[in-house]
Amino acid sequence: MSADAARDSLFGDAIASEDARPLSILPPLPEARQRAALARGEALMRALALVDEARADDDAEPGSDPAVRRLEAKVDLLVGLVGALMQRDQPADPVRPLDWSARGAAVSLGPDDTVPAVGDAVVLRLQPSDTLPEALLLPAHVLAIDSGPDGARAWLRFDPLPTGLEALLERHLFRLHRRAVAERRRQR
């Protein structure tokens, strides 16, 4: 499949986001570990939705209680510290350009990265947000590879995701898209 066909397949009529996120492409997981990773991913995305939507509600209410805002700021700091502690002993994934939707992702790889072959089963390890610094593991297959002088771009179609995880991923991408549109409007 060509890169253009892969782009249309993954992003044609889907909500998508352009971002730079810590991520890696890994070999596939055994089935039991994959099921556990998808369940953990759903819990992560549910927690992220609660945090992001609560923060959006606070922005909409300028007269909210200052004591509650201070408490939320302390909780945010605590979450950041716990996340940093969790990642302290783990190697950090490099931050890479990423286009993604609930269907799949286009990932930029560096010149020194191992480039998977078209049709390979892989796992995309992706940190979806800085708010909760935990990785989401998404099983995928390589649709296309677009090679260039600065490296390659891998087009990955996610394997069928649990319905709840797919819905949460779509909500997350919608929030990212909405923030990007708002940021562009502010810059005008």
Results as ranks from 00 to 15, higher is better:
A56D: 15
D57S: 10
D59R: 15
E61R: 15
G63Q: 09
G63I: 02
S64M: 14
D65L: 08
P66I: 03
A67P: 05
V68N: 06
R69W: 10
E72V: 08
E72L: 05
E72W: 03
K74Y: 06
L77P: 06
L78H: 06
G80F: 10
Q87F: 09
R88P: 07
Q90A: 11
P91Y: 03
V95D: 06
L98S: 01
D99S: 08
W100T: 00
S101V: 00
G104C: 01
A105W: 00
A106S: 09
G110C: 05
G110S: 07
T114M: 07
V115G: 15
A117C: 15
R125T: 05
L126P: 00
P128R: 01
P128G: 02
T131M: 11
P133V: 15
A135P: 03
L137W: 05
L138M: 06
L138N: 00
H141M: 08
V142K: 05
S147W: 04
D150I: 12
D150Q: 10
D150A: 13
R157E: 05
D159K: 05
P162R: 02
G164H: 01
E170R: 00
L173R: 00
R175T: 02
H177N: 13
R178D: 11
A180V: 11
A180S: 08
V181D: 10
R185Q: 09
